[in-house]
Amino acid sequence: MNVKMIAIAGFFAALTTPVLAQDNQFTTADEIQMQNCWEAVTDLNMQGEEHSLSECIGAASNVCMEEEEGGMTTVGMASCIMRENSWWDSILNINYQNLKQILEPKQFEDLRDAQRKWIAYRDASCAFHYNYWGNGTMRSTAFAGCMLDTTARRASELSNILDMSML
């Protein structure tokens, strides 16, 4: 088993912690959807095709919206999206901690500074999407969608950096 596969296995093992019971926290079903998508992308990449983890954005939340009672309501959609967002946020944090272990101190300091600026950007950008909708019910879904997309893309970016660092 190569280093990348070991890291992926450890990564998924870390996700099975007891944090699942929190509000808007991903469920076992969400985890299975995301893991299946992640593995499919990884398999395609290992076969020489070029795919990105960002292709998995929406894999769990779309199923949640279709299958959960009330999933197609505004509140239900926002909840499903934020559940998946919590999965991506955990990926982002795992990747960040793994990068902390393998990057040179100056490289990690640069990453830490970038991460702090990214968090400020994400929060401001998603606040804009929320406020743009005023008092409309769409604002919670717009906010959740922004958080999911922004967090997932950053998690994917850190995953790519981690992959390159392990070569």
Rank of each mutant, 00 (worst) to 15 (best):
Y132N: 10
A60C: 08
H129K: 10
S79K: 01
A114T: 11
A124F: 06
A59V: 06
M147P: 00
M138G: 02
T28G: 12
G70W: 00
M34S: 09
C146D: 04
S61M: 04
E68Y: 08
C146Q: 04
M138T: 02
N24T: 05
Q115E: 14
H129E: 11
H51K: 06
M65L: 07
Q97L: 04
Q97E: 10
A59Q: 06
G145W: 00
G145K: 01
T150L: 07
S156P: 01
H129F: 09
T17Q: 08
I8W: 08
R122W: 08
A29N: 14
A155Q: 10
S165H: 05
L158W: 05
C126Y: 02
I32T: 15
M34Y: 02
E49H: 08
I119C: 15
L99S: 08
A29E: 15
Q47R: 06
I8G: 07
G71L: 03
N85P: 07
A40Y: 06
E67G: 00
M147I: 11
A78V: 00
E109D: 06
P18W: 09
L167N: 09
H129T: 02
M147D: 07
A152V: 13
T73Q: 01
L20S: 09
A14L: 12
Q22C: 15
H51A: 05
A155H: 13
G76V: 03
S90I: 09
K4Y: 10
T137Q: 00
E39P: 00
A155D: 11
E104G: 03
H51P: 00
Y96P: 11
Y121L: 13
I32W: 06
Y130N: 09
L167Y: 07
R154W: 04
E104I: 02
S54W: 04
A21M: 14
S61W: 00
F12K: 11
Q25R: 15
M138S: 02
Q101I: 07
M72H: 12
I94M: 12
F26Q: 03
M72E: 13
E49L: 07
E69Q: 09
F143I: 00
V41I: 14
N24E: 15
K100W: 05
V41L: 12
M138F: 05
A144R: 01
F143P: 00
G136S: 04
P18K: 13
I161D: 11
V41H: 04
M72Y: 07
S140N: 03
N135I: 08
T42E: 11
N85K: 13
T137E: 01
Q33G: 05
W118G: 08
A59P: 01
I102Q: 06
E67K: 12
Q107R: 10
S159A: 12
S86M: 13
V75D: 08
T137Y: 01
D149L: 00
M34C: 08
L15A: 11
S86L: 14
V75S: 07
S79G: 05
S79A: 09
M82F: 04
